[in-house]
């Protein structure tokens, strides 16, 4: 494992820790899209089916279990915790799941590496992850007030895939020179979706102002 991949994983992990910290410490999930969080649960459930079929490393298994456990617990807090669920911006979080999930599934049926259940679901999870942030970005744009934890959460979540892109370039040159179009292009799309957010996040940080996205 190279340093970019590790940095990507740690950024991803840190983003989730920040989100859980916000929810648990402030007993609030304002500004967080339940739609996006539910899509991540689907992403992890469909991608990590190989937990049952092959062992890669202790690190790999542990991280997969952590991502599954934390994403499910975030959704649990937002849906069922008696205090947290009242802070959920339901009226503003209107993006439809199937609007993203169905096209991704159809695309995975059409474009995949191998036509097996595990491979198609893995491909679906890659496509879905690329666009799963959209409900969250829409919600942020509608929120007049983005708190620091939410801003940092989205920033780290975007930075993680950007670091993976660097990791893939590095792996291409240092390992087997194999081309992996499905994850590479999806990762590129995923990172590009954050471009606008990154711009306003860095600008607000430089000017020491509160983060606000233009409507």
């Amino acid at each position: 494992m190279n340093v970019f991949r590790l940095a990507g994983d740690m950024t991803h992990l840190l983003s989730i820790i920040i989100l859980l910290l916000k929810i648990r410490a402030t007993k609030s999930c304002t500004g967080i899209s339940l739609k996006t969080q539910e899509l991540y649960v689907i992403v992890f459930l469909t991608r990590y089916l190989d937990l049952f079929t092959k062992y890669i490393s202790f690190y790999n298994t542990t991280m997969k279990l952590v991502f599954l456990g934390t994403s499910i617990s975030i959704v649990w807090y937002m849906r069922y915790h008696k205090v947290v669920k009242q802070t959920y911006n339901k009226d503003q979080d209107t993006f439809r799941h199937y609007f993203l999930a169905i096209p991704c599934f159809l695309l995975a049926l059409l474009i995949h590496h191998e036509f097996t259940v595990i491979e198609v679901l893995w491909t679906f999870s890659i496509y879905l992850e690329a666009v799963a942030i959209l409900p969250q970005l829409v919600l942020l744009q509608r929120s007049r007030n983005i708190d620091n934890l939410t801003g940092n959460y989205v920033f780290l979540l975007g930075a993680y895939r950007a670091l993976y892109l660097v990791n893939w370039v590095y792996r291409y040159f240092t390992e087997n020179h194999l081309v992996r179009w499905i994850p590479w292009l999806s990762g590129l799309v995923q990172t590009t979706l954050y471009a606008d957010f990154f711009y306003y996040y860095i600008k607000s940080w430089k000017n020491n102002e509160k983060l606000q996205l233009p409507a």
Partner: peptide
């Protein structure tokens, strides 16, 4: 051949 070397990623 391994279907994808990125399968060891998360």
């Amino acid at each position: 051949e391994e279907p994808s070397s990125v399968k060891d990623e998360l």
